[in-house]
Amino acid sequence: MESGIFQTTYQKDMALRRTPAQFIRLGVLLAFVLVFPFFADNYWLTLANQIGIAAVGAIGLNILVGYTGQISLGQGAFLGVGAYATGILVKQMGAPWPLAVVAACFITALVGMLFGIPALRLKGLYLAIATLAAQEIIEWVIIHSPDLTGGVEAMVIPAPTLFGQRINSDFRFYWVILVCLILTIILTTNLFRTRTGRAFIAIRDQDIAASVMGVNLFRYKLLAFAVSSFFVGLAGALTAEYRTIISWERFTLDTSILYLAMIIIGGLGSVTGAVMGAAFMTLLPAMLQLLGRTAGGFMPNILQQIPFLQQAFFGLVIILFLVFEPEGLARMWRNIKDYFRLWPFSY
């Protein structure tokens, strides 16, 4: 029975994992994600890949919204920028795909910075609406430049190859996504142990105080937009390479809202939360579909209602989480851990 976690050196206190239990959990999780694809069928692999891509995007959005406190409704458009940049680079300029993906990240970071400029004057609601405008403008540009993006038609790109192997199955792509996700998680968790990351958090908590303490708001707000958009661009590029079909319908305002829902349900300002939220919001409609199919045996008209049920549950879980657990799944997970840590004297 312990009363808290105490460290005796600063080095240990700064470590990302500080208790044996944390190392064990990490090990179990790693073992699971490494073994999982060998036992899962295609359905679950597809879901896992979707979760992985969504997790990268949600972590990116969480850097901006959860850690820096700048609300963005332009997530869908930034994903689109990443996807279309990859598509154009691979298809029209013939770039090798890993290079195209990296370039797409930087391009998205630049676009993100451009649309982050209003954040220097605006905050809260006004910023949310400015990013809503960014979403609508970028979407419009994508649809109305058919020479570059194919317009309303979908853009088809060749499946990526690696070491002479075509990465065209869910099983093979799983590893690409896994590497990207792990890199994103490591980079992001470490970002918030640096001066830059702490400056982001200071801006979120109290921007005036942050600027008094020497945080250059201009620089760090733009930087937050850039870093966040970089990872969002990565998610967009992965979507493009994974689907090999890029269609603007994937990058609408609804996508922005879906990602915001992920980080709110997962937990604002938490990397683990973003991953959990991404998993939750991907699994929820899939599980509803499974349930609906099962129920469809004796209630035939439920099948056409599934999309609306999914939409209704989507709205409902957002409201329920905000009202009952505003800190999301990350907080619930912490409560569960605390319960067992303090057992049998839990409170």
Binding site: F314, G315, I318, I319
Partner: peptide, 15 residues
Amino acid sequence: PIISVIMVTIGLSSL
């Protein structure tokens, strides 16, 4: 925070 209030109205509209 404002983000929660925005999201709850968005959730409502979806519902």
